[in-house]
Design a protein around this nucleic acid. Structure first.
Lengths: 315, 315
DNA sequence: TTGTAGGCGTTATCAC
DNA sequence: GTGATAACGCCTACAA
C-alpha cells in the first residue's frame, strides 16, 4: 500500500504537491493534478486514517457497546443508529462485551483512539468507571445507567411505560393484570414495575408480579391468580411466556391477553401479531444526533407508545 | 490526554526513557521506572493506538461485516469468533452493512487501517470487489462467496447438510419430506437444495420444494402433498413455518415434523425444542484462527450435525 | 505553481 | 542508565 511520499516520488513532485492534488486544493497546475490523481488511482492509494487521526486528534467513529447476550433488540437499535450516523459521515462500530472488564477495555481503547462517542448498553448493572475514562471519552448509557453520576443516561420515562401498559389493558376490560418482570433488576425494570404498581393501585386493582427466571411455573401461577392479561417487561419475555403458555394449551389472546414492550423489528418479523409498547427509537436516535452536535439531550419526555396487534383481546 | 513526550518533560527525562519504563524494557533504573509509571498512572496516560499502527504497519483488529437484516444467527457467530479472538489479543469489531456500496466502503476503510482480517457475510450475492481491495485486505467470506475467485470462501459441505437432513428424517420413517428453501438463492441455499434432491432421489422419494417468501400458503401446500416432514433451510425459516402452521392448527410434531439448520443459541433460547442441524461453528472458528496464523484453511470436511430435540417425531 | 520544514505520538537504534 | 535521532503517513505553513 502506497503513501503520499512514494506517490510524490513516482510523479516526480513533492509531497506537498501531491497533497494539494489529492485534496483538490488550489496551487497545482491542471496537468500535475491529473497526473497525481491518475497515479493514485492506478496504485490504489488510500489515505491512512490513523495518520489523520493523530494529526487532527479526532476520529469519526461512534462505537456501540452491546452485551453479548440477548442482543436482538439491541442489534435493531444499533442498526437504526448506524443508519442515522451514515448521513453524517460517521461510522458506527459495534463491540460485544460480556462483563465489566471487557467493557472497560473496550472503552479505554475508544478513548485512546479519540472516538467521537460511545453508546453503551451495559452488560451488568451499576458499573463504576475509572474517573479518567469518564473525563476522556464522551459516553451515553442506554437501558441501565452508569454508577458514575456524571455519565449521561438516556432513557424514556419508564414509569410512564409501566402505567401505559396497565391503562391500555384496563381500558379493554381487564382487571386481573399480572406483570412479568425481568429477573435482572435494572433501573428500567424497576421503573416499569413501579409504574405498573402505581397505575394498578390508582385503579384499585390487585398487582401481581412474576419474577422468576424459569417460566415453566408461569402457567400455574397465572391460573391460580385467574389473570386475564399478562404485561411483560419486553417482547422477548412476552414470546417466551407465550411459548410456555401454549405448551400448556393456554390460548392467546382468547384465554390470556399478552402485552410486550420494545417493538423490535427483527422479533416482530417472527411474531408479527404481538401487541407491544414501542420503544421510542426515533426520539433516541434524535437525542444521539443532537449530542453529537454538542447540544445536551434527554429522553425524559419520550415514552413507549402502544402498537396494537393480535395478542390482546377485549373482554 | 497526555503523550509520552509530555510525560518525559514532566518526569525530567527523555522520551526514550519513558518508553523503556512503560514497556518494562531493560535500561532504566528502578527509581526512574517507578517515577515514570507513577506519573503515567496519575495522569491516565494511554498509548495512542493509531501511532503504533502507523509505525508498525499493522492493526490488531479483526472485522466482522454482517448484513443489517436477519442477524440473529450471524450475531451468535460473531460472538463466538470474538470470544476466540480475545484469547489472542485481537479485538473483534462488527459493522452492519445493507448493500454492496456500504460493504466496499467498510472494507476500504479496513484496508487503509491495515486491519488483520475481515470476516464477511455479504448482504447480496455475487458481489465483485475492486482488485486493489482484494490485494490489500485479508478477507474471508462466509455463507455466500465473493464473485472474485481469489477470495477465500469458508463453507461446510452444504450438499452433505442437505443429504443429512433427508437421511435423519427418512430413518425416522418419513417418506413425504418437503423442503422449505430460502427465497434468496445463495450458493449455500442451492447446495443444500441439491443435497436434498440427490438424497431424495437415491431413496426413490419424491422431492417437493417450497420457495415463496410468503409462508401463508405453506399450510395448504403441505396438506396437498400430505407431507409428514418439513426440512427447512434454517432455524429462522423453521420457526416462521411453525408459526404459520400452528395458526392453522397443525400440531408439531404430531401432524408434521419440522427440522431446521443452524442451532443458533439465541433462537434456541426462545425455541429450546427445535430439532436442527447444528452449523459447525467450532470448526469455523478454528479455521479462522488458523488463517490468522498464516496457514490455509478450509471447512470442506465439516458439515452440520443433527441436534435432536422436540420437533421431529418417529412415524 | 511548487518545494521544504516541522510536527502529531510512538518506537527502534545509535551513541554516550 | 540515559539521551538524541530518525522513521511511520499525513497535513499545514512558509519560503521560493
Amino acid at each position: 500500500m502506497i503513501s503520499t511520499l512514494e506517490l510524490a516520488r513516482i510523479c516526480g513532485v513533492s509531497q506537498g504537491t501531491v497533497d494539494r492534488a489529492l485534496h483538490d486544493r488550489a496551487g497545482v497546475s491542471q496537468a500535475t493534478r491529473a497526473r497525481v490523481l491518475r497515479e493514485a488511482a492506478a496504485r490504489d492509494y488510500r489515505p491512512h486514517p490513523a495518520a489523520r487521526e493523530i494529526l487532527t486528534g479526532s476520529n469519526p467513529v461512534v462505537q456501540a457497546v452491546l452485551p453479548a447476550a440477548n442482543n436482538l433488540f439491541f442489534m435493531d437499535l444499533a442498526e437504526q443508529i448506524g443508519q442515522a450516523l451514515a448521513g453524517r459521515g460517521l461510522r458506527l462500530q459495534i463491540a460485544l462485551v460480556r462483563d465489566r472488564k471487557a467493557l472497560i477495555e473496550t472503552l479505554e481503547d475508544a478513548a485512546a483512539r479519540r472516538q467521537r462517542l460511545s453508546i453503551i448498553i451495559p452488560p451488568e448493572d451499576g458499573i463504576e468507571l475509572p474517573a479518567g475514562l469518564v473525563r476522556d471519552l464522551p459516553m451515553v448509557f442506554l437501558l441501565a445507567p452508569c454508577a458514575n453520576p456524571s455519565v449521561l443516561f438516556l432513557s424514556p420515562d419508564e414509569e410512564r411505560t409501566g402505567g401505559s401498559g396497565v391503562d391500555y389493558l384496563a381500558r379493554r376490560g381487564h382487571r386481573r393484570i399480572a406483570f412479568l418482570s425481568s429477573p435482572r433488576l435494572t433501573q428500567a425494570v424497576e421503573a416499569r414495575m413501579r409504574g405498573y404498581l402505581k397505575e394498578m393501585k390508582s385503579r384499585n386493582l390487585t398487582p401481581d408480579i412474576f419474577r422468576e427466571g424459569d417460566l415453566r411455573s408461569l402457567p400455574d401461577w397465572i391460573a391460580e391468580r385467574k389473570a386475564t392479561a399478562l404485561f411483560c417487561h419486553n417482547d422477548w419475555l412476552a414470546v417466551q411466556a407465550i411459548q410456555a403458555l401454549q405448551k400448556r394449551a393456554v390460548r392467546i389472546p382468547d384465554d390470556l391477553s399478552v402485552l410486550g414492550v420494545d417493538a423490535s423489528p427483527t422479533l416482530a418479523s417472527l411474531f408479527p401479531n404481538l401487541t407491544t409498547l414501542a420503544y421510542p427509537v426515533e426520539a433516541l436516535v434524535a437525542s444521539i444526533l443532537s449530542l453529537l452536535d454538542g447540544k445536551n439531550a434527554s429522553l425524559a419526555h419520550a415514552s413507549c407508545r402502544i402498537m396494537s396487534r393480535g395478542t390482546v383481546a377485549d373482554i
